[in-house]
């Protein structure tokens, strides 16, 4: 569904993404792992249109989407969440969700003044949908709470909820589990699986928690130093020599060899 071809992203002399190529199958939950600084988030940002790649191509269902601005990608059904949860802090959780769908009729000045009825109908539907999503995520009690005031884990749930407000085709989750306790993480995992099975969302998940990855993801892609190292099931990845080297460093491996 998404094909990344030889993408480079350089910040001055630093090559954050250095010729990464990968393919994401429709309907899959793909895991993206790698040590810190491997270029995972940068690659996300390039795909999601936040950063322009230095070179390379990204296509979605055969269509070239390289360098399209984020809100265009949003309308094509490509959504992402942030490593550090983002929210509209002065708005309630429900309003946060209601902000998501684009092209609402209240967005034109004409309708704001003369299309009140249409807007009211639309808002009612949106409101119902937002409440549904909040219930799905088991945070319906927070609907009136300002999003700036809820906990970090709850913000992560809200991030996920945002992707449920529209018919997404592919969702990029950047460390949904970071700073989230086990129970909440399981809730998030359940939600991802349900969305994948019931609504056919494709997911790409960056995560450091291997249990979480193992439960959800097939295939798993491992990146290091801006390149794709290996791809396969989590067990295959775990057994891959390059991956062990990237995570644990060559020093350790050599020592082991000496020992053996």
């Amino acid at each position: 569904m998404i094909v990344v071809q030889d993408v480079h992203k350089h910040f001055g002399g630093f090559h954050a993404v250095d010729g990464a190529s990968l393919e994401i199958a429709e309907g899959s939950i793909t895991g993206l792992i790698g040590p810190n600084g491997a270029g995972k988030t940068t690659l996300f940002n390039v795909i999601a249109g936040v950063l322009q790649p230095t070179s390379g191509r990204v296509t979605m269902a055969g269509e070239d989407i390289t360098g399209l601005p984020p809100h265009d990608l949003f309308h094509k059904g490509l959504l992402r969440t942030f490593q550090i949860a983002h929210e509209f802090s002065s708005m309630s959780c429900r309003e946060n969700l209601m902000m998501v769908p684009g092209g609402q009729s209240g967005e034109t000045l004409w309708n704001t003044w003369f299309g009140q009825k249409r807007i009211a109908d639309e808002e009612r539907a949106l409101r119902a949908k937002a409440d549904e999503v909040l219930e799905f995520l088991t945070i319906e009690h927070l609907s009136e709470q300002k999003a700036g005031e809820i906990s970090g884990g709850q913000k992560k749930l809200l991030e996920l909820g945002r992707t449920m407000m529209v018919d997404a085709r592919i969702v990029f989750l950047d460390e949904v589990g970071a700073g989230v306790n086990r129970t909440l993480l399981n809730t998030i995992g359940d939600a991802i699986i349900r969305l994948n099975q019931e609504r056919g969302y494709t997911f790409v998940v960056i995560e450091h928690d291997m249990d979480f990855i193992g439960r959800l993801c097939d295939p798993v892609i491992c990146m290091a130093e801006g390149k794709v190292l290996a791809e396969g099931t989590l067990d295959q990845i775990k057994a891959n020599e390059h991956v062990i080297e990237a995570y644990l460093g060559t020093g350790l491996k050599n020592k082991e060899k000496v020992g053996a």
Binding site: H71, M99, Q104, S105, G106, E107, T112, I119, V166
Partner: peptide
């Protein structure tokens, strides 16, 4: 109270997130 006004507040609050929602920044 209006969607446009809320979009403006959202854009002011968190530009990155606003760009990744259905908000059209040029508008």
């Amino acid at each position: 109270r209006t969607r446009t006004g809320k979009s403006m507040r959202a854009y002011s609050d968190n530009e990155d997130l606003a760009l990744l929602s259905g908000i059209n920044p040029e508008r």
